[in-house]
């Protein structure tokens, strides 16, 4: 595939079924169909200033970020989820959403390129 450093890793998916290529490809396809929508919903929830929905989408995005080992925002997505749920540190929320969105877009682009999709 590629030797350039990537923002995501397939380590966890490889562990699940001994690097079964078809399995990885199927998960990647589902990811590419869904992650852009989820990320977009998170941004829309911020625009609406709807904490409940920010929590909901951040929560959903968290497992995707975990599965694709997008380490640079793992702590951030947890914080975002927590702040939105508990209505704390709300001043940090817009910045966190912005960062998560940017990194997700980058991951999506990289994955599309790597899998030629």
């Amino acid at each position: 595939m590629t030797t350039a450093p990537r923002i995501y890793k397939l380590d966890r998916l490889n562990e699940i079924d001994n690097s079964d290529e078809l399995f990885i490809l199927s998960i990647v396809q589902v990811f590419l169909e869904n992650a852009p929508i989820t990320t977009n919903n998170l941004v829309l929830a911020l625009n609406d200033n709807n904490l409940e929905m920010i929590y909901f989408w951040a929560h959903k995005l968290k497992s995707n970020i975990n599965l694709f080992c997008i380490e640079s925002i793992m702590t951030e997505i947890k914080n975002l989820e927590q702040f939105a749920k508990t209505n704390t540190n709300t001043d940090q929320i817009p910045g966190l959403v912005k960062l998560v969105n940017e990194v997700m877009q980058q991951a999506i682009t990289e994955i599309k390129t790597d899998f030629k999709l």
Binding site: L13, I16, S26, I27, V30, F31, E33, N34, A35, T38, K60, S63, N64, L67
Partner: peptide
Amino acid sequence: DDAVYSAV
């Protein structure tokens, strides 16, 4: 409801 997680 998360399609990725469900597929995994």
